[in-house]
């Protein structure tokens, strides 16, 4: 038995980048779907539907890139729940055991709910993969965007992509990774809800206020 206490887990940069990412991913997915398969929405050529959709897409892309970069920075500066070690439990023996335990719970093989203060081991691993997907999206997206100015700074930064991959391959990757992130978002919302219900740690509200309910052993 332990006393229930409120613990400050998610610091401000973690929460801000989380919600900025969410808004950006939603915006980028909706605008991206239109850019990938547009409908004729304009009656005259003097309208600017695709122009605005692309403008929103690019602005959201910059916001997203800055947010992801900030979060990576915070992985080296933040508290223990924000640190990069949280995302690579696979590196330690204890972490691998937590991953196995969590996997057993998720697949109904165990009734023991893993109670951790920060991310559970599988969630942390999933976020490491998701951040990798973020980086893929940012690099492929800015590479495609840079093509409007092939002698520009941005193209110098990401132009190496075109030496390694075909242009259409980069486009396809950008498209498919969006779907992987949409699938992740579905999983993410469900898992957060599940853990909120079962674990009773207040993980959902924790992402707004920063506090989670933690029981301490006497």
């Amino acid at each position: 038995m332990g006393n229930l206490s409120e613990k400050y887990v998610w610091e401000v940069p973690v929460r801000v980048t989380h919600w900025v990412n969410m808004v950006c991913i939603l915006t980028l997915s909706v605008t991206g779907l239109y850019i990938g398969a547009p409908r004729t929405l304009a009656l005259t050529p003097s309208e600017y539907v695709m122009g605005w959709v692309r403008f929103v897409h690019f602005v959201a892309a910059y916001a997203f890139a800055i947010s992801v970069a900030s979060r990576i920075y915070w992985a080296f500066r933040g508290n223990r729940y924000a640190r990069w070690q949280e995302f690579f439990p696979i590196l330690t023996r204890e972490g691998r055991w937590h991953m196995f335990e969590t996997f057993r719970y998720y697949t109904f093989l165990s009734r023991q709910i893993p109670h951790v203060t920060g991310h559970n081991a599988l969630a942390g691993t999933a976020y490491a993969v998701v951040f990798l997907l973020y980086l893929v999206m940012i690099v492929t997206g800015f590479a495609l965007y840079a093509e409007h100015a092939p002698q520009g700074t941005l193209h110098t930064l990401v132009g190496w992509m075109f030496a390694l991959f075909s242009n259409q391959g980069i486009r396809l990757t950008h498209h498919l990774t969006m779907w992987l992130l949409i699938a992740f978002a579905i999983h993410h919302v469900y898992s957060a809800w599940l853990m909120d219900v079962k674990e009773k740690g207040g993980v959902m509200s924790g992402m707004f206020g920063g506090y989670k309910s933690v029981r301490e052993r006497n």
């Binding site: 038995m1 332990g2 023991q112 709910i113 893993p114 109670h115 999983h187 599940l194 079962k198 009773k200």
Partner: peptide, 20 residues
Amino acid sequence: FAAHGVVSAFRRKDEPEREK
């Protein structure tokens, strides 16, 4: 996940590591 949710909803004896 919907299927997982349905199963989860009917499993009432899941135990947190520490008692409530």
